[in-house]
Amino acid sequence: MPRATSSLRAYVLQRLALTVPMMFILLTLVFYFLRAAPGDPVSQILGERNAQFADVIRKQLGLDRPLYIQYFDYLRRIFTGDMGASLFTQRPVAEDIAHRLPATIELTIASMAVAIVVGVLLGVVSATRRDRPADVASRLTAAVLYNTPIFWFGIIMQLIFAVGLGWFDVGGRLDARLPLPPTITGLYTVDSLLTGQFVTFLDALKHLVLPATTLGLVLSGFFARMVRANMLQSLQADYVEAAKARGVRRGDVFYHHALKNAMVPVATTIGLTFAILFSGAILTETVFSWPGIGLYVANAIGARDYPALQGAVVYYALIMVFVSVVIDILAAWLDPRIRY
């Protein structure tokens, strides 16, 4: 189908063009909040006492120049990948972040998987048993899950499954005594499995389960809500009734007609769920000492490490834009109507 392919390509290009203004807005907002907002990061960093030292730092960071020059300098540096050096680690922020990115990606993917599986299950149970006890029960479960403070939930999980039962580890990515798997993807579970290091794989998994479940379960509440709402609509759709009238098997009606159509709007909002996921990851990584970007942000806050914070935020902005494009393309692939 050459026609479909080319129009999908056009759609993707159109989407990519839209991301340019979106990226500028995000980057500008970050700049504005960090430098032009009332209050001054440098005095926040140093407190009122070190006025002299503050001037030196300001000069070092280029904060004494006019705002618009700072702004263009800021943009230039972002596009050349130069985010300055962390005040705390003394290394380039870009390097720090690149080093920590795989940990965050591993946690994010695992959490998303947990969230989608649990969320779709809860949502489907709810929608197919509308207003019956099973519906009420899974709705309440979803509401409680989604509204649980994630850091607290993480602590409870640690208390029960790591401290109490000893099944999993309290924190970190891997036992310090084990050798690191060779870097292929940067994801310990994947790399160890690819190279056949099963001991390392099991240990990496033991570390990953609790943080991924914590983050995933909280997010599953969000999915459950959306799946339920969309399933309720698609179960009442005309094409579902028509399929029943043709004697299509119950399973097919449910899966191919009701569920798939309900998942299209859910897929388009996955971009937004990434925002929730990243927010949650900051807290989850802090609780589980998971050495990703979230923990980096938390440490940067504690150390008042302002270049590190800015660098992390810029990275998140870039990731969010990237994710939203990927999600839109995914939705177009799912729904033939968007392609044209």
Partner: peptide
């Protein structure tokens, strides 16, 4: 753009 950005961050 603001909405799509992680709220906590």
């Amino acid at each position: 753009s603001i909405y799509a950005f992680p709220g906590l961050l």
